[in-house]
Every structure is written in structure tokens, then in C-alpha cells.
Design a protein around this nucleic acid. Structure first.
Ligand code: ZN
Ligand code: ZN
Ligand code: ZN
Ligand code: ZN
Lengths: 132, 132
DNA sequence: TAACGTTATGTAATAATATAACATTTATAA
DNA sequence: TTATAAATGTTATATTATTACATAACGTTA
């Protein structure tokens, strides 16, 4: 059962934009796109992004400095994320594989460290780009 | 058997600095530290970093925009990397776990994508920070 | 309702990270 | 040698992200 988060005005504008885009978006591209809605400054964008990441509605693709809407309805928080990234067309998908997530969530080694979160990024060529 | 790369002057200066630091270093901190050795501009640092990453002598910690010397002698290229990051003291270690790397290198799903590279970052509290 | 604490917003300035463009030099190899 | 690739030097600029401070909206409870 997913907690309902009542998004604020700016959070909703920015989430809707990212979600509808269907892919990763960069902060300043978001800013450009929401200026007509009254969001004029980078900080307004970064604050909304920060909150949306915190509650798991979006994730940051670290290697690309970009943000993508969560494609996995059960992702309440951004604490166990995996993505596949095409190095040619830059298409990104969230990987939703229960074996993988179990394996990583349960991973431990002899470092004495307790892992509470992970982020995994796979790179390669997508189907389309491979066949070119 | 690891290929010997003859590092250039700037590459050697920057690699030695990162390696001796024993942890992750940020580009502008590197720049500051090597200015006395004649490296004066960001681009000189980023070019050396780019090459060092390419040949696997260092890795980029994406979530921190920082660079760490490879702690795994068999890492020829930065194509299969895993790190543990303490969210309190920011200590970073490269994870060298053959089961994990086999599991991830062989991972495939039904997306039709061929994965040639991955980067995994685990977050948590290290032993020291946990006991505080 | 009133008071309070929390969350979100607005705005300006600036910090931190990274690359483009161009000229020159050094290393490698045919 | 000649050519080719790799590395360097330098200036300027692009991109990504945060600090600082003031104000407004929201939710809770007295
Ligand atoms: Zn998700
Ligand atoms: Zn592709
Ligand atoms: Zn390594
Ligand atoms: Zn720690």
C-alpha cells in the first residue's frame, strides 16, 4: 500500500512534466519547460526535484544528472533502484526485477557495513541501437 | 595480466595524488592540490581524469562527483564497478566480490538489451559511524 | 479562531562541476 | 623523416547545484 503524497503546486507541475516526457529530464530543461507556469528559478526546480526523489516519485540517474519518473508502482522511496541506459540513444528504463532487487537488498560482505540503499546503473545498447 | 599503461606527466601527477589520498577526491580539490606542480586549469585535470577512468586506474563515484583510485588490481577498465559509501563520514570503498560481479556481469532481462557495463553504489553506515 | 510549527515558495546571488575551441608540443610508429 | 595520434596549455564558457534571506501557505491543536 503506497502512501499518498499530496504534491504541492510546484511539485505537481514538475512531476507531471517529467512523467509525461516518458524519459529522463535534466534540471535546466525542466526549468525551461515550466517557466510559462511561473517557475522561474533553478532553486524552485531543485527543491521540487529533491522532494520528489525523497518520496520516490522520481529517481535521479546519477551518471546523467537527469531525473526520471518512477516506472515501478511499488517504489515508495528511492532506496533500491536499478536502471538500464543505452549509451547510444540515451534511452533509460527502470529495471523491475524481483530477483535482482532481492539479491541486492540482501547483499552483505565482511566490511561490517549495513547497506540501507543502493543504486545500480547498467549500460549497453538497446535493441534498436544494436541492430543499426 | 594487466596491461601496462605509461601514464603521461599530468596523468601520473593526478593519479598519484588520488591514490595517496586513499579516498575519493573531487576535481577542483585535485586542481587545487596540483597547482604547485604546474597544472593550472580545470581542463587539464578533467582530461587526465577522463583518461585514468578510461584505463581503469580510477573510477568515478557518480553520486558524489568524485574520483577514487581503483582498489582492485584486476580492474582493467571501469566497466564493472561497485562501491560502498558511508552516508555519514563519506568513506568509500570499492567492493571486490566475485559472486556479486559474476551475478551482475551475467545479468540479463527480457528488455533485449545487452549490458556491457555497470556501476553499483551501496549506501549505509560504516562500522565506525554505526557505533556512534 | 488563534497561535504555533512545518513545509513550501519567491528571488537574487553565487558556488561547484564540466566542456568547447583553438594553438602548440610531445610521443609513437611507418 | 614524415605522418599520425596523444597530450598539453590557455581562455572562455556551459552546465549543474546551493546559500542566504524573506515571505506565504498549510496542518495541528489549544
Ligand atoms: Zn522506482
Ligand atoms: Zn538505444
Ligand atoms: Zn576498480
Ligand atoms: Zn562512516
Amino acid at each position: 500500500m503506497q502512501k499518498e503524497h499530496n504534491l504541492s503546486k510546484n511539485q505537481k507541475i514538475i512531476f507531471d512534466l517529467i512523467d509525461k516526457s516518458g524519459g529522463p529530464m535534466k534540471a535546466y530543461s525542466i526549468l525551461f519547460n515550466v517557466q510559462k507556469k511561473g517557475i522561474k528559478a533553478p532553486l524552485q526546480v531543485y527543491r521540487a526535484l529533491g522532494k520528489l526523489v525523497e518520496i520516490g516519485k522520481i529517481h535521479k540517474i546519477e551518471s546523467r544528472n537527469a531525473f526520471i519518473a518512477c516506472q515501478n508502482s511499488s517504489c515508495q522511496v528511492s532506496k533500491a533502484t536499478a536502471f538500464s541506459i543505452c549509451e547510444s540513444c540515451e534511452n533509460v528504463s527502470e529495471i523491475s526485477n524481483s530477483k535482482l532487487s532481492k539479491y541486492l537488498s540482501n547483499f552483505s560482505d565482511n566490511s561490517g557495513m549495513k547497506y540501507s540503499k543502493y543504486n545500480l546503473e547498467f549500460f549497453g545498447l538497446c535493441k534498436k541501437c544494436k541492430s543499426k
